[in-house]
Design a protein around this nucleic acid. Structure first.
Lengths: 188, 188
DNA sequence: GTGGGCATCGAGCATTATGCTCAACGGCCG
DNA sequence: CGGCCGTTGAGCATAATGCTCGATGCCCAC
């Protein structure tokens, strides 16, 4: 049974660690994907539970989880918190045009604004995509003002998030990675 | 020792539940924020550890955590997974203009594309903000093509995420919530 | 003012998980 | 061919969990 097999050997990649900050050379293999997928279903699941659910040894799951966390495959717990529950039911995307050389500076300034929860430098005619949360429309207006006031920011455009058509998900991609191997059919 | 407190009493808010799907009336209070903040620092922390770190009883932390999870304050575990670690180091934001009445339909079609990991309906001249991941530039091109091919989509514009100036964080907002004295009334 | 409701607390208890170590198995690669 | 590693199963001391209880303090409604 546990002869599932082909638990591919991938760790080799681990050694090839580049330096970089985020998402360097580390890559999850099929087994990792299965663990992550199981965790997605039951975040509170214990290592033991995961192990038997996946037909792996407790030891393996424990080691892999430790590695996943150590290598930064798992991001901060904050990602799991719903801003709406914190009293910020409004989300908006503010795109900003920035004076070329002041990108980093502007990024830091934006970090001072509590309601700015993510800033990404992007290609295109706008330079920044800023994710913002707000308690209400007034609040949003105020935050938008603070953003525009940042030295280096030339112009902004605000788009209110009106509906989540498809909430964040990696399941599709996880399934691909996980399914890769044996495809046990109905069995589990 | 446990006399630290002044653990505000806030739960009243809970009852004020609106209906809605996501992030309805449920709101975290200062204590919740402190728990979440502690968890952000140490995702693997046990309930017991959290309790003594925060000067709360184990019972309280356990009850609150259960409630946070039950009420959807905590989103899926998937949020914590770094797509880069899954072999998708590229992130792009695709904005799309959609034929008015076909928004929902388009949303579903986009869900069929594995690399589409988030779709938000927004205000402004573009209707959709689509978060996409890709293994490399070719892959991204291919995905962009599939998006544009969705019936109902009129036009798209793709912006590549070049740098994370400020990775997702709620810490600023959490600190505010947590730091607040037990005075939920009035202010703000 | 008084009582109900509710969250918190501290305690206890049976069960389960954790963290760690060990030796052995098996495939992969040089 | 031999070494390297990830995996496995086992064992064991310690710690955490899930649950229940009665008691306390506070807010709010009556």
């Amino acid at each position: 049974m546990s002869k599932v097999s082909k638990v591919s050997k991938v760790s080799k990649v681990t050694s090839g660690g580049g330096v970089g900050g985020v998402g360097n050379g580390v890559r999850a293999d099929a087994t990792d994907a299965r663990i992550l997928r199981a965790l997605a279903k039951e975040p509170r699941a214990t290592v033991l539970a995961l192990a038997q659910r996946l037909g792996l040894s407790r030891n393996t799951v424990q080691a892999r989880l430790a590695r996943l966390e150590r290598d930064g495959v798992l991001r901060s717990f904050e990602y799991r918190i719903d801003p709406a529950a914190l009293g910020y039911p409004l989300t908006a995307f503010v795109t900003a045009e920035v004076e070329q050389r002041r990108l980093t500076e502007v990024g830091e300034a934006l970090g001072e604004i509590d309601e700015v929860i993510e800033v990404t430098g992007i290609s295109g005619d706008m330079d920044l995509l800023i994710r913002v949360i707000a308690a209400d429309a007034d609040d949003l207006y105020r935050v938008a003002g603070r953003i525009l006031a940042c030295p280096g920011i030339v112009r902004t455009r605000t788009a209110l998030a009106m509906r989540e058509l498809l909430p964040f998900r990696l399941s599709a991609v996880l399934d691909n990675l996980a399914g890769q191997a044996p495809r046990p059919k109905g069995l589990r």
